[in-house]
Design a protein around this nucleic acid. Structure first.
Lengths: 398, 398
DNA sequence: CGATTAATTCAATTGAGTTGAGTTAACACG
DNA sequence: CGTGTTAACTCAACTCAATTGAATTAATCG
């Protein structure tokens, strides 16, 4: 359990719009359009946004001057003057992503153009607030050194992944809890350690954002992400926005009961690293490290195959619930396990025909594998920060 | 099944902001603040929105001139000049709400101040597109006549409730399907019949909006609504916004399997009007009309009590899933059944302790009864339209 | 009664998008 | 090869709406 600063529902209090906030809104909008398109021109953005070409021109002028955009040659298509193309500048800035696990801290530095510039994993005895506070500054400067000049000095902020749920809930006491974080204001503690604005999120939400910003869910506005962690988490993106629930604890799908090996059990007793380790342990094989899992998969270990065959129907039930409750464009499966394991599980999962997602003409498969790999969570934490720069919103400048 | 105009995901394409759209945004924001507060003054709104008092003053001046707001006396509190209070003008406008059921059409006219001005229920043989098209104009003028002068002539639009799911899905063939609507563009058809802009929504979403705008969920930004209809539906409101899913079919909770009478069955086999009717039919009592249910409840009919006792644990499982997946501030239960039945069911429902919603300090109960009564769906349809006027958004004026 | 506090208004200013005319650079057709 | 067409882009004047700061009004406090 992690301390949650407020016991009341999140309130993002919409503020009124004025010229200044309009400009910030339109800047983000334009940046987002460039990111979405990869490369595009002013006139095209004007059409996409309903702004005049002049307005877009002024904004793009600003963004180029500020180093956010680069000119990328002219595009020659049909008649008329060729349109100058713009792309997100690789050195426009970067965001830090940090994952705090019970026995390790993972860090990633991701550029606003989507390049992962640096990753590192540090094992710790216990990831208590003191240890992490001492560890972070060093890690942070090391990360920044590795990309000096390339991502410039503009660090937008830090995203931090910590295991949920946040605040006191009926799910406390899970083995994934971090010691010592429940009593302190985690965000303030981390901002103090890093000297950067910090956003805290759970692993599944961060992973979902990783796939949306950097991975397989780019351009998909409404999807669910099943995160294969110690337990099983669910990250929800609807209309391009992360759904956190009223207290930041949406997505606790691991506790939903499903039929598994003939009995009703919480889904994460069937599908999760914890479940897999328990199963392999019973077969006297360890499965605590990602490399080991990969080896077991290559050697087609019968216990692993058995687990896959048992887990798939449980997963299918979970997906049916998610599909019927949220009607997503697709469900992404991923997490801190080898890509091959995810794919093997997907291959064995027969999706229920009785859901709203079983529609005739689909542009995406109902269940797809995440591509962000092992560093999904820390990269997602960074993606979280990057995403805000590309998502327009009217907000008072604090 | 109802025709869904597009087989691709909803796209509400954000447009850029300019002076005009900023003004519209701020107007809605101010209107929303007045609605939220009941009565409030300019300076207070300025503080709430981060706008200057001058800006708020100008906007309020406009809104009063346009008939949206009324002055409601000065408030004398402490020092300083007393603040003029403003309220939503009862005759500022109204919205039409229509529910199309297989054997009946229900209509409601709701003023922007929240007053229900008129309701009517018309039985029909089959609610096919032709019948409805012929019926609506008369119903509509009748509704408007009953409030002439009171709600003025400003009708903002019509909300229409039709049973989901929309478009082709894996859930087709449900008994709640409407005949003949799958082949036509329902929205265009209804706009033609009414001469008003039409918003189509399913019953649960409309009911959720009814409670948010008119009922027990006022001021609650994130909640789930369990709608007791022919089946069981789920309306989701997150951050004040209705969550429709990618194709408008979010909330099909009725198909989630739960343990009911010793076997895994879809939740709506346990909790729904359909389930109740089947159970009472087996006890040789009809239960097809709301009045009959009320009588059965008063006489404490043993079969009904038995059904309540059986349904409650199933409901509890459904609620646990909703809580863990969405972390709402509260869950509202309601629908087209007597209020007393809803309350009797709630009284028997023991909520799971193992969910994120089991938090120590709660401002709302975890499960509360809806208060919008029998006309929930049509009133909610109207609320849907009214809500847009009070919700700020940057959008191109088409 | 004067000082203080708070709401409101007036008038001038500012920021940002729009408008419409003009420029540039490609293609297409004779 | 030149002229017309098309489309991207730019310049300068304009407009809308919010901000700023001073002034006004109406209440309470001492």
């Amino acid at each position: 359990m992690v301390h949650s600063p407020a016991n009341h529902a999140y309130g993002q209090r919409t503020s009124g719009s004025n010229a200044e906030r309009s400009r910030a809104f339109n800047r983000s909008l334009v940046l987002g359009k460039v990111r979405e398109a990869g490369a595009t021109g002013r006139a095209q953005i004007a059409r996409d946004t309903g702004l005049s070409t002049q307005a877009v021109s002024n904004i793009i002028g600003d963004l180029v001057a500020d180093g956010w955009l680069h000119e990328a040659g002219k595009r020659n298509e049909g008649r008329g003057q060729p349109a100058m193309q713009y792309t997100i500048a690789p050195c426009a800035g970067a965001a830090l992503g940090i994952e705090i696990r019970p026995a390790a801290v993972l860090i990633a530095l991701v550029g606003v153009d989507g390049q992962t510039l640096f990753t590192e994993r540090v094992a710790v005895d216990t990831a208590n607030p003191q240890t992490v506070h001492k560890l972070l500054p060093g890690l942070c400067t090391r990360a920044l050194k590795h990309c000096a000049g390339k991502a410039g000095e503009r660090i937008l902020g830090a995203g931090v992944v910590m295991p949920g749920p946040f605040g006191a809930t009926g799910l406390d006491g899970a083995p994934s809890d971090l010691p010592g974080w429940a009593q302190i204001d985690a965000q303030a503690h981390l901002e103090d350690a890093l000297g950067l604005p910090v956003t805290i999120e759970n692993d599944a939400n961060a992973a979902a954002m990783a796939e949306r910003v950097l991975g397989v869910a780019q351009g998909i506005d409404t999807f669910a992400y099943l995160y294969f962690g110690t337990g099983l988490g669910l990250g929800l993106v609807a209309g391009g926005t992360l759904q956190r629930g009223a207290f930041g604890n949406a997505g606790e799908i691991g506790h939903v009961p499903v039929l598994y090996r003939g009995a009703l059990q919480p889904l994460e007793q069937a599908v999760s690293r914890m479940a897999l380790q328990r199963h392999m342990h019973a077969a006297r094989r360890s499965a605590d490290r990602v490399e080991v899992l990969q080896d077991l998969l290559v050697e087609k270990h019968p216990a692993l195959l058995q687990w896959l065959d048992d887990a798939a129907p449980a997963l299918s039930q979970g997906i049916a619930i998610v599909e019927n409750l949220l009607d997503p464009q697709t469900v992404v499966l991923g997490g801190a396990v080898p890509q091959e394991l995810v794919e093997a599980l997907i291959a064995r999962t027969a999706l229920s025909p009785r859901t709203v997602s079983n529609r005739p003409h689909r542009s995406h498969d109902r269940l797809i594998a995440g591509t962000c790999g092992r560093m999904t969570a820390p990269r997602g934490a960074a993606a979280l920060v990057i995403n805000t720069a590309f998502t327009p919103h009217i907000a008072a400048i604090a």
